[in-house]
Protein backbone atom coordinates (compact mmCIF):
# COMPACT_ATOMS: atom_id res chain seq x y z
CA UNK A 1 0.00 0.00 0.00
CA UNK A 2 1.42 3.38 -0.94
CA UNK A 3 1.70 6.23 1.54
CA UNK A 4 -1.01 8.21 -0.18
CA UNK A 5 -3.36 5.23 -0.21
CA UNK A 6 -2.70 4.59 3.47
CA UNK A 7 -3.45 8.23 4.25
CA UNK A 8 -6.67 8.09 2.24
CA UNK A 9 -7.71 4.89 3.96
CA UNK A 10 -6.87 6.30 7.42
CA UNK A 11 -8.85 9.44 6.66
CA UNK A 12 -11.84 7.45 5.48
CA UNK A 13 -11.73 5.26 8.59
CA UNK A 14 -11.56 8.35 10.79
CA UNK A 15 -14.53 9.79 8.92
CA UNK A 16 -16.55 6.60 9.47
CA UNK A 17 -15.59 6.61 13.14
CA UNK A 18 -16.81 10.20 13.45
CA UNK A 19 -20.15 9.19 11.97
CA UNK A 20 -20.69 6.22 14.28
CA UNK A 21 -18.59 3.94 16.45
CA UNK A 22 -20.43 0.95 14.96
CA UNK A 23 -18.94 0.27 11.52
CA UNK A 24 -22.22 -0.86 9.96
CA UNK A 25 -24.15 2.11 11.30
CA UNK A 26 -21.31 4.37 10.15
CA UNK A 27 -21.73 3.00 6.63
CA UNK A 28 -25.43 3.89 6.70
CA UNK A 29 -24.71 7.39 8.06
CA UNK A 30 -22.05 7.85 5.38
CA UNK A 31 -24.50 6.95 2.61
CA UNK A 32 -27.14 9.27 4.08
CA UNK A 33 -24.68 12.15 4.28
CA UNK A 34 -23.52 11.46 0.74
CA UNK A 35 -27.11 11.65 -0.51
CA UNK A 36 -27.53 14.99 1.25
CA UNK A 37 -24.35 16.35 -0.30
CA UNK A 38 -25.38 15.15 -3.77
CA UNK A 39 -28.72 16.87 -3.28
CA UNK A 40 -26.97 20.06 -2.15
CA UNK A 41 -24.77 20.19 -5.26
CA UNK A 42 -27.71 19.31 -7.49
CA UNK A 43 -29.78 22.15 -6.09
CA UNK A 44 -26.80 24.39 -6.72
CA UNK A 45 -27.02 23.46 -10.40
CA UNK A 46 -23.89 21.32 -10.60
CA UNK A 47 -23.94 18.78 -13.40
CA UNK A 48 -21.69 16.31 -11.58
CA UNK A 49 -23.08 16.34 -8.01
CA UNK A 50 -21.81 12.83 -7.20
CA UNK A 51 -18.22 13.77 -8.05
CA UNK A 52 -18.40 16.90 -5.94
CA UNK A 53 -19.89 14.99 -3.00
CA UNK A 54 -17.02 12.50 -3.16
CA UNK A 55 -14.53 15.35 -3.43
CA UNK A 56 -16.04 16.78 -0.24
CA UNK A 57 -15.49 13.50 1.59
CA UNK A 58 -11.92 13.25 0.31
CA UNK A 59 -11.17 16.72 1.64
CA UNK A 60 -12.89 16.10 4.98
CA UNK A 61 -10.93 12.83 5.34
CA UNK A 62 -7.72 14.75 4.61
CA UNK A 63 -8.55 17.26 7.33
CA UNK A 64 -9.12 14.43 9.80
CA UNK A 65 -5.72 12.93 8.98
CA UNK A 66 -4.15 16.35 9.54
CA UNK A 67 -5.63 16.25 13.03
CA UNK A 68 -8.35 18.86 12.60
CA UNK A 69 -10.84 18.77 15.45
CA UNK A 70 -14.38 18.36 14.18
CA UNK A 71 -17.33 18.63 16.54
CA UNK A 72 -20.27 18.45 14.12
CA UNK A 73 -19.45 16.39 11.06
CA UNK A 74 -22.59 17.46 9.15
CA UNK A 75 -21.87 21.15 9.66
CA UNK A 76 -18.19 20.61 8.82
CA UNK A 77 -19.06 18.80 5.61
CA UNK A 78 -21.40 21.64 4.72
CA UNK A 79 -18.56 24.15 5.18
CA UNK A 80 -16.24 22.09 2.98
CA UNK A 81 -18.99 21.53 0.39
CA UNK A 82 -19.56 25.28 0.23
CA UNK A 83 -15.86 25.84 -0.45
CA UNK A 84 -15.84 23.16 -3.13
CA UNK A 85 -18.92 24.71 -4.74
CA UNK A 86 -17.17 28.10 -4.92
CA UNK A 87 -14.07 26.50 -6.43
CA UNK A 88 -16.29 24.67 -8.90
CA UNK A 89 -17.99 27.87 -10.00
CA UNK A 90 -14.66 29.65 -10.29
CA UNK A 91 -13.25 26.87 -12.46
CA UNK A 92 -16.33 27.01 -14.68
CA UNK A 93 -15.90 30.74 -15.14
CA UNK A 94 -12.26 30.27 -16.10
CA UNK A 95 -12.85 27.36 -18.40
CA UNK A 96 -16.14 27.05 -20.24
CA UNK A 97 -17.30 23.46 -20.11
CA UNK A 98 -17.48 21.51 -23.30
CA UNK A 99 -20.75 19.92 -24.37
CA UNK A 100 -18.93 16.64 -24.80
CA UNK A 101 -17.96 16.70 -21.12
CA UNK A 102 -21.55 16.59 -19.97
CA UNK A 103 -22.63 13.34 -18.35
CA UNK A 104 -24.57 10.90 -20.51
CA UNK A 105 -28.19 11.88 -20.89
CA UNK A 106 -27.57 15.52 -20.03
CA UNK A 107 -26.17 16.69 -23.32
CA UNK A 108 -28.51 18.91 -25.34
CA UNK A 109 -30.13 17.17 -28.25
CA UNK A 110 -30.61 18.71 -31.66
CA UNK A 111 -33.35 16.23 -32.39
CA UNK A 112 -36.48 16.72 -30.29
CA UNK A 113 -37.95 13.42 -31.48
CA UNK A 114 -37.12 10.15 -29.83
CA UNK A 115 -35.42 7.43 -31.76
CA UNK A 116 -36.83 3.91 -31.90
CA UNK A 117 -34.15 2.77 -29.47
CA UNK A 118 -35.07 5.51 -26.98
CA UNK A 119 -38.75 4.60 -27.22
CA UNK A 120 -37.84 0.97 -26.55
CA UNK A 121 -35.73 1.96 -23.52
CA UNK A 122 -38.60 4.06 -22.15
CA UNK A 123 -41.01 1.16 -22.68
CA UNK A 124 -38.68 -1.10 -20.70
CA UNK A 125 -38.46 1.46 -17.91
CA UNK A 126 -42.26 1.62 -17.76
CA UNK A 127 -42.45 -2.16 -17.61
CA UNK A 128 -39.98 -2.23 -14.73
CA UNK A 129 -41.89 0.48 -12.89
CA UNK A 130 -45.13 -1.44 -13.38
CA UNK A 131 -43.50 -4.62 -12.12
CA UNK A 132 -42.04 -2.90 -9.06
CA UNK A 133 -45.39 -1.25 -8.28
CA UNK A 134 -46.95 -4.70 -8.33
CA UNK A 135 -44.47 -5.82 -5.69
CA UNK A 136 -45.65 -3.19 -3.21
CA UNK A 137 -48.46 -4.11 -0.83
CA UNK A 138 -51.97 -3.05 -1.84
CA UNK A 139 -52.14 -0.40 0.89
CA UNK A 140 -48.79 1.13 -0.04
CA UNK A 141 -49.61 1.15 -3.73
CA UNK A 142 -52.96 2.81 -3.08
CA UNK A 143 -51.36 5.37 -0.77
CA UNK A 144 -48.89 6.31 -3.52
CA UNK A 145 -51.76 6.80 -5.93
CA UNK A 146 -54.08 8.67 -3.56
CA UNK A 147 -51.31 10.97 -2.41
CA UNK A 148 -50.13 11.62 -5.94
CA UNK A 149 -53.61 12.67 -7.08
CA UNK A 150 -53.45 15.16 -4.24
CA UNK A 151 -57.09 16.26 -4.00
CA UNK A 152 -56.88 16.68 -0.25
CA UNK A 153 -53.74 15.32 1.33
CA UNK A 154 -54.54 16.72 4.76
CA UNK A 155 -57.77 14.77 4.81
CA UNK A 156 -55.87 11.67 3.71
CA UNK A 157 -53.47 12.16 6.65
CA UNK A 158 -56.40 12.52 9.05
CA UNK A 159 -57.98 9.33 7.73
CA UNK A 160 -54.67 7.55 8.29
CA UNK A 161 -54.46 9.05 11.79
CA UNK A 162 -51.19 10.89 11.32
CA UNK A 163 -49.79 14.24 10.23
CA UNK A 164 -49.35 15.42 6.66
CA UNK A 165 -45.59 15.57 7.18
CA UNK A 166 -45.51 11.91 8.25
CA UNK A 167 -47.58 10.83 5.25
CA UNK A 168 -45.38 12.89 2.94
CA UNK A 169 -42.21 11.23 4.27
CA UNK A 170 -43.85 7.79 4.14
CA UNK A 171 -44.76 8.36 0.49
CA UNK A 172 -41.20 9.55 -0.19
CA UNK A 173 -39.82 6.32 1.33
CA UNK A 174 -42.16 4.29 -0.86
CA UNK A 175 -40.88 6.14 -3.92
CA UNK A 176 -37.30 5.44 -2.79
CA UNK A 177 -38.17 1.76 -2.43
CA UNK A 178 -39.59 1.79 -5.95
CA UNK A 179 -36.55 3.59 -7.30
CA UNK A 180 -34.23 0.97 -5.79
CA UNK A 181 -36.36 -1.82 -7.23
CA UNK A 182 -36.33 -0.24 -10.70
CA UNK A 183 -32.56 0.26 -10.52
CA UNK A 184 -32.06 -3.34 -9.41
CA UNK A 185 -34.25 -4.57 -12.26
CA UNK A 186 -32.32 -2.58 -14.83
CA UNK A 187 -29.04 -4.05 -13.57
CA UNK A 188 -30.29 -7.59 -13.25
CA UNK A 189 -33.78 -8.62 -14.39
CA UNK A 190 -33.56 -11.73 -12.23
CA UNK A 191 -33.12 -9.63 -9.11
CA UNK A 192 -36.77 -8.69 -8.98
CA UNK A 193 -36.86 -8.28 -5.23
CA UNK A 194 -38.23 -5.32 -3.30
Amino acid sequence: MSGQEATGSDGFNSLLLMLDSNREQAGIRYEELRQRLISYFRHRECLTPEDLADKTFTRVSGKLVEGEEIRNIGAFCFGVARMILKEHWTSLNKQPSSLTDLPAGQEPSCDPFRTEAEIEIERQKLERMEWCLDQLGDEDRQLLKDYSIGANREHLARVLGTTLKNVRVKVHRLREKLKKCVEACSRDPNAYEI
Binding site: N72, G74, A75, K165, V169
Partner: peptide, 11 residues
Protein backbone atom coordinates in the same frame (compact mmCIF):
# COMPACT_ATOMS: atom_id res chain seq x y z
CA UNK B 1 -30.80 19.68 5.91
CA UNK B 2 -27.13 18.73 5.58
CA UNK B 3 -26.92 18.23 9.35
CA UNK B 4 -30.33 16.65 9.85
CA UNK B 5 -31.36 13.63 7.79
CA UNK B 6 -35.05 14.00 8.73
CA UNK B 7 -35.04 17.54 7.34
CA UNK B 8 -33.38 16.25 4.17
CA UNK B 9 -35.98 13.49 3.75
CA UNK B 10 -38.74 16.06 4.15
CA UNK B 11 -37.13 18.28 1.52
Amino acid sequence: YLSDHDAFEHL
